[in-house]
Write a protein that binds this DNA or RNA. Sequence first.
DNA 1: ATAAAATCGGAACCAGCAACCCGTTTCGTT
DNA 2: AACGAAACGGGTTGCTGGTTCCGATTTTAT
Lengths: 248, 248
Amino acid sequence: MAERSHSLLPSQASASLRADARRNRALVLQAARSAFEEGGLGVPLGEIARRAGVGTGTVYRHFPSKEALFRAAVSDRIVLFTDTARELAHTEDAGTVFYRYLSAVIRLTVRNKALCDALEGRFEPSPGVEEAFREALGVLLRRAQQADAVRKDVTIDDLMALLMGCLSMEQRRAPGVPQGRMTALACDSLRPGRRVTKLPAIPSARRNETQCEVCGGPVAPARTGRPARYCGAACRQKAHRERARARS
Amino acid sequence: MAERSHSLLPSQASASLRADARRNRALVLQAARSAFEEGGLGVPLGEIARRAGVGTGTVYRHFPSKEALFRAAVSDRIVLFTDTARELAHTEDAGTVFYRYLSAVIRLTVRNKALCDALEGRFEPSPGVEEAFREALGVLLRRAQQADAVRKDVTIDDLMALLMGCLSMEQRRAPGVPQGRMTALACDSLRPGRRVTKLPAIPSARRNETQCEVCGGPVAPARTGRPARYCGAACRQKAHRERARARS
DNA sequence: ATAAAATCGGAACCAGCAACCCGTTTCGTT
DNA sequence: AACGAAACGGGTTGCTGGTTCCGATTTTAT
């Protein structure tokens, strides 16, 4: 059987591809992006091929499955979100940055059914892409909490759930209601201040457990007097690198 | 062609049905309820027939389509919600009642995929059923606002969207997070108090427009000195009836 | 008991769609 | 220009799931 590369890295792939193949690959990816944006994971593959002006066989030459195509079409957006969050982690005014970032992510995602399907977990995204986003968002959250702009009892899990809730709300808001109204409403629940309801606590194993400052995951109980701050060596090193970068 | 009744009214249907037909109808409906509850609108019809111990043809004898079956299986739950809301509209302590009702609806709906599909509008419910629910919920909302338990700038549209957002959030909450945590978080955004963000206003045609006290719909500008309170004669009469019922 | 009518069951039908295959076309090289 | 390899396209296959059809069966009325 002929060797198929199926590489997701465009630069690498385009180097060794025949001219027409390179062109068609770009056409397919472009068509997939716009089609998935409008119709989500549900658009038939034939529709994408039609839009790209190629046969379905050509699509399968470049991407081993519909899911792989979807991943390729959508993951760069999430990576962009992640990169933006990482940059914003070194700015002043953590509170403002946090809320602005959250609103922007929601605004950009709502009108993109593909992103909705991805963030709402309706398919398995490229390994690591979603985790990286979650991690970067967690950093923004923790900084905003330290700046007293977000209530302290909210976890990154809560925030991810709230994000999906906002997507759901904005998607189904009544006609005439402005974009962002539901997000603003939900964001109010994140702000610190007089609380009437106490958040139902996270029970048992997860109670009293500190969260890793980088990834938000569970931190093993400290063996020394000083409490541990990271879930492992990888996150500790990452935090050190980020601090070094912030200083420069 | 033989006359098929396809009636959705059980009492009426059961009167004229043959004994085995009546029994099978109940079996199908029961199986549909539990199957849809677990798998939402997505469960295949054959699965329901299998659970009921009948053939697919029998299902189609009683319900003209899968959607009709879904409606029949799910609408009584929504009607129950509506009835409960109507009863609660005559109790003291509108604030507490409002939040408790909201939480209960969400709690009961989250574990019922069929209800989720219905409330999130993934299919066309029986005409009027959803409107009635919305209407009844609107009454509770307005009473809670008058009792200063809910911020005044929230509309029934906002609330319906928030409800769906809560469903989405509770469904996708991280493992270990207790049921209701996300709802509590979202409810905090409804409470009055110091606000940092101003809700994006609903523009143009709908601004400055009062809401009907019964259905929450738009009220025509008052022609007399006294402002109009209802969107039409139907809602005015309904309000009168409800007041009379409350007095008795 | 018997026959007509209603009902039952599930095989058959149909549509949509992902994935595959192979005869044909195009490209890059010699 | 000619040749071989790579790429193309769309017809084909397999599967899932909603809907229909009809011979077999059960119920009810006489």
